[in-house]
Design a protein around this nucleic acid. Structure first.
Length: 429
RNA sequence: GGAGAGGUGGCAGAGUGGCCGAUUGCGUCACCUUGCUAAGGUGAUGUACCGGUAACGGUACCGGGGGUUCGAAUCCCCCCCUCUCCGCCA
C-alpha cells in the first residue's frame, strides 16, 4: 500500500509507476482512490462538526434537570438521524477507498529497466561459464529416471501433473542443498524460522499477494486458510500489527518451508521435469529494517550476494538480471532475478528472486517501529530473496555436474551434506 | 469437539452508561539533584485522520463487526484470538 498523501501530492508519478509495470487497469485505481478521498475529505469536516455538537450537548445533558431534559432530547434525536446518514456514507467511502488503495501498485524505482516482460530484463552480472561436455549432455529428468532417483509417473498418479517423487541420492541431495542453505545463512547472522504453511488472508493481503494472486494459491476454504507459495508470506507477516523497538532492527530471518503453487495458466509451459512443480522446498531470506532507502538498497545487494555465494559454492554458472517494469510484481519496488545455467534449456533458468518493497508491505501489514531517537512511529522496510529452491536447483546441479556415464560430481562444498561422497549414482549410460 | 476465564495505550494493569482518550505502575525522554554504591526528585510521553504556515483546534480509536441509547471501553448479538480444564489425536 502506498501512502495516500503520495497519491495526492504526485498522482502522476503513481500513474506512471503503474504504466511502467504494464498494469493499465491499476491506473484506474489511482483515479478512483483520489475521487473517493476527495469526497471523504469534503464529508469529514461536516461530520466532525456534527459529532462535536452531539458530544458537547450530550455532556451538558448529563447535568440537566429532568424538566429541561425532555426538550433537549428532541434536538438530540434529530441530530442523531442526520449523523446516521453521514456516517453510513463515511463508512462506505472508507471501505471503497481502502479497496482501491490496495490495488495501487508500488512505485518501481527509477533504476528499474523499461520493458514488457521477462525477455526485456537486463543482465547486470554474470559468473562462471557454461560447461563444455566431451559427450552429449542429458537433461536432468533422463539422468534422474535412469538412476531411479525420480518418478514422475507415480507422482502424477498420486497427485496429478507437475508433481514428482524423489528417491535415494537425489532425495538426499535435495535435503543437502536446503541444509547447506540454512547453515550458510545462519553463519551470516540470520535467525532460522520454521513458519506456518497455512495462513490467513491477512498475511496474503499484507505481503501483497492478495488481491490478485488468488488463482495461484491453494486454499482451504473450510478454514479460510491459504497454503503459502513462499515463506515470504508468513515470515514477513510475523510482526504484523506490531510496534517494534528501533534497536530490535534489523530482523534477519531465514526460513525453510514447503511452498505450494497452483501454476494456473501455465499449461504446456515447462511441462517436463522438475522445473515447474506444484510443491517444492525453499529456503528464503527475509529482512525487516528501518525506513531508510539507502539501507534497503544495501540489504538488497547483500541478500543477492548471499544467494550468489551459494551458487558459487555449488559451482553453478549464473547471471543476475534487473527485472524490468512489465515483469515486476505489484508490490515490488525493484527486483533482481538470479538465473542459473541449465544445459537442457540451452540457457539460464530463474532460480532466485530478490525483491525490495520499501514500506509497501509494511503499510499493508501495519508493521511499524519506534525510531531509536524517539521520533514518530514509522513503517518498516521489507525485503526478501531465495537462498535456494529445490528441486529446481537440482536441475542445474544434475545437468552441469553430470558425467558421461550418468554419475554426478558433487561440488566440494556439498560433500559434507551427502556423507562425504564426491560422486552420486552408478554408471548408467 | 465440550466447559470456563479473558482480550484496554510501547509493556503491565485499573475502569460496568455521561465527570474516561481512559487511574496507576513500568519503560522512554527532558530537566534537576546527588556521593553512600547499578540511586533520588520534578515534569513530559498513544495512534490515525481532518482543518491550519504554525501555535493550535476538531474527530475517531479500549480484539473485529453489528445493535440498544440523546450518549457505550462499560449493556446486547455475531465473529476472531489467547489461557485453563475435559475429550480426541500425530
Amino acid at each position: 500500500m502506498l501512502d495516500l498523501k503520495l497519491l495526492r501530492d504526485d498522482p502522476d508519478a503513481v500513474r506512471r509507476g503503474a504504466v511502467k509495470k504494464r498494469l493499465p487497469d491499476r491506473v484506474r485505481a489511482v483515479d478512483e482512490a483520489l475521487r473517493l478521498d476527495a469526497e471523504l475529505r469534503e464529508l469529514l469536516p461536516r461530520l466532525d462538526g456534527l459529532r462535536s455538537e452531539q458530544k458537547a450537548a450530550g455532556k451538558a445533558l448529563g447535568k440537566l434537570g429532568p424538566a429541561e431534559r425532555e426538550a433537549f432530547l428532541e434536538g438530540q434525536k434529530r441530530l442523531k438521524v442526520e449523523l446516521q446518514g453521514l456516517e453510513e456514507r463515511e463508512k462506505q467511502l472508507r471501505a471503497e477507498l481502502q479497496q482501491q488503495l490496495a490495488l495501487v501498485p508500488n512505485l518501481p524505482d527509477p533504476e528499474v529497466p523499461e520493458g514488457r516482460d521477462d525477455t526485456e530484463n537486463v543482465e547486470r552480472t554474470r559468473w562462471g561459464t557454461a560447461p563444455e561436455f566431451g559427450f552429449a549432455p542429458r537433461p536432468h529428468y533422463e539422468i534422474g529416471e535412469a538412476q531411479g532417483w525420480v518418478d514422475f509417473t507415480r507422482a502424477a498418479e498420486l497427485a496429478g501433473s507437475r508433481n514428482y517423487v524423489l528417491f535415494g541420492d537425489l532425495a538426499l541431495l535435495h535435503d543437502a542443498v536446503l541444509r547447506f542453505a540454512v547453515d550458510l545463512m545462519v553463519g551470516r547472522g540470520f535467525v532460522p524460522v520454521d513458519p506456518p504453511l497455512l495462513v490467513r488472508d491477512a498475511a496474503m493481503f499484507g505481503t501483497g499477494f492478495f488481491p490478485g494472486g488468488e488463482e495461484q494459491t491453494y486454499r482451504c476454504e473450510k478454514d479460510g486458510l491459504n497454503l503459502i507459495g513462499t515463506a515470504e508470506v508468513p515470515v514477513t507477516s510475523l510482526h504484523q500489527g506490531e510496534m517494534l523497538a528501533g534497536d530490535a532492527l534489523p530482523k534477519l530471518y531465514v526460513a525453510r518451508s514447503a511452498c505450494f503453487r497452483r501454476e494456473a495458466g501455465t499449461y504446456g509451459k515447462d511441462t517436463r521435469g522438475l522445473y515447474r512443480v506444484h510443491q517444492f522446498q525453499k529456503v528464503e531470506q527475509v529482512v525487516i529494517d528501518v525506513a531508510d532507502k539507502a539501507r534497503s538498497i544495501e540489504h538488497h545487494q547483500r541478500i543477492v550476494a548471499n544467494a550468489e555465494a551459494l551458487l558459487q559454492a555449488f559451482e553453478l554458472p549464473y547471471r543476475v538480471v534487473a527485472v524490468c517494469g512489465g515483469d515486476l510484481g505489484v508490490p515490488q519496488a525493484m527486483k533482481y532475478d538470479i538465473e542459473t545455467w541449465m544445459p537442457s534449456r540451452g540457457g539460464f533458468g530463474e532460480t532466485h528472486s530478490a525483491s525490495r518493497f520499501y514500506d509497501y508491505q509494511a503499510r499493508r501489514l501495519d508493521l511499524r517501529y519506534r525510531p531509536k531517537d524517539g521520533g514518530k512511529p514509522q513503517y518498516c522496510h521489507t525485503l526478501n530473496n531465495t537462498v535456494v529452491a529445490s528441486p529446481r536447483i537440482l536441475i542445474a546441479l544434475l545437468e552441469n555436474h553430470q558425467q558421461a556415464d550418468g554419475t554426478i560430481r558433487v561440488p566440494a562444498a556439498l560433500r559434507p551434506y551427502v556423507g562425504g561422497r564426491a560422486v552420486l549414482g552408478r554408471p548408467v549410460f
